[in-house]
């Protein structure tokens, strides 16, 4: 029961079957809208409006049903096929809903429903974009190793750095362990999405300045501090050790940057769903309100 030898993505599932069907629906709606014999201004209340509205409502339920279908395991069929239908019919739904409204917007529950729908579709479109672009980007960006291996390598580098620093003066050692402790990857949702490096470093007091915490983005503050120490160093054995320490820190910085980018891309792939789903439920509620309002204020 496999989909054949080639991977079928949800874009071209069964040779764009759902894209074609959704497209046909879209074209039909446009044609009906343009060539319809209406004597009144176009709005949701005309017979065309009601028809398009019903189609739209049914589409919304069908699309929301994807959430149920996705979690039903062992029932057969193809989730990729359902997603394909979901994406293409979701896009055409925007068109259908717009035509249904006859472009009559105002400050009311009907337009609120429309706006919510637009947000849902937009967040979905954003999600589709991330699904299309990011997986390849992620692999290319990470090189050919898994994320676990990347993290493991960073830990190994930290271990090596500590061992080298163990035989250096205590202030260097303290600086290093502090930097390791304060190296930050990810963090809050916002931090992850921005891919911003929020690592910090505690510079001890000296040179007439009190101790302060500075940004250690890209391990730069640490590298500067170590380089400064190195410049003031006289002992050749210690100089050699400091050089190797700097090499290790530089390598770690590049790996951490890769890891941060990886976390960012991964978060972006997941984040849109945290918008799409709550908006969808809000839409369902608004839809019910919209339909009731229409029928009660008939």
């Amino acid at each position: 029961m496999n989909a054949g030898v080639m991977h079928q993505s949800f874009f071209n599932y069964r040779r764009y079957r759902y894209a074609i069907r959704a497209g046909l629906l879209g074209v039909a709606s446009i044609l009906v809208y343009i060539f319809c014999p209406l004597r009144e201004p176009k709005s949701g209340g005309t017979w065309i409006g009601y028809t398009l509205g019903t189609i739209g409502a049914l589409l919304i339920i069908y699309l929301a049903w994807y959430g149920v279908r996705r979690r039903t395991f062992g029932a057969g069929g193809s989730t990729a096929g359902w997603l394909s239908a979901h994406v293409y019919f979701g896009l055409v739904l925007m068109l259908v809903a717009t035509l249904h409204s006859g472009f009559q917007f105002g400050w009311n529950v009907h337009t609120a429903t429309y706006v919510l729908l637009a947000l849902v579709v937009l967040s979905g479109a954003w999600g589709t974009y991330t699904y299309a672009k990011y997986p390849s980007l992620i692999i290319r960006q990470r090189g050919n190793i898994s994320r676990a291996e990347l993290v493991e390598e960073i830990y190994q580098l930290d271990g090596r750095a500590i061992r080298v620093a163990a035989s250096l003066p205590p202030d260097v050692h303290d600086l290093l362990t502090d930097a390791i402790r304060r190296t930050q990857v990810g963090g809050s949702v916002w931090a992850m999405l921005r891919g911003y490096d929020e690592s910090t470093l505690l510079i001890p007091s000296g040179d007439g300045q009190p101790s302060r915490v500075v940004s250690n983005q890209g391990q730069r503050a640490l590298i500067e501090a170590l380089a400064g120490r190195l410049a003031a160093q006289a002992d050749s054995a210690e100089i050699a050790k400091m050089h190797s320490l700097l090499d290790i820190v530089a390598r770690k910085a590049s790996l951490v940057a890769r890891l941060q980018k990886d976390v960012q891309l991964q978060s972006l792939i997941q984040f849109w769903l945290y918008l799409h789903l709550p908006l969808c439920f809000a839409l369902l509620v608004a839809l019910v309100a919209h339909v009731i309002a229409v029928f009660f204020y008939w």
Binding site: N2, A3, V5, R70, G76
Partner: peptide, 23 residues
């Protein structure tokens, strides 16, 4: 291989993007 499921391997049917296949 989900031999007791009529629909075949669950991992393949459940993959939303079509990334997983059994060949």
């Amino acid at each position: 291989m989900c031999k007791d499921l009529k629909a075949g391997p669950a991992c393949v049917s459940a993959c939303p993007t079509g990334a997983a296949i059994r060949i």
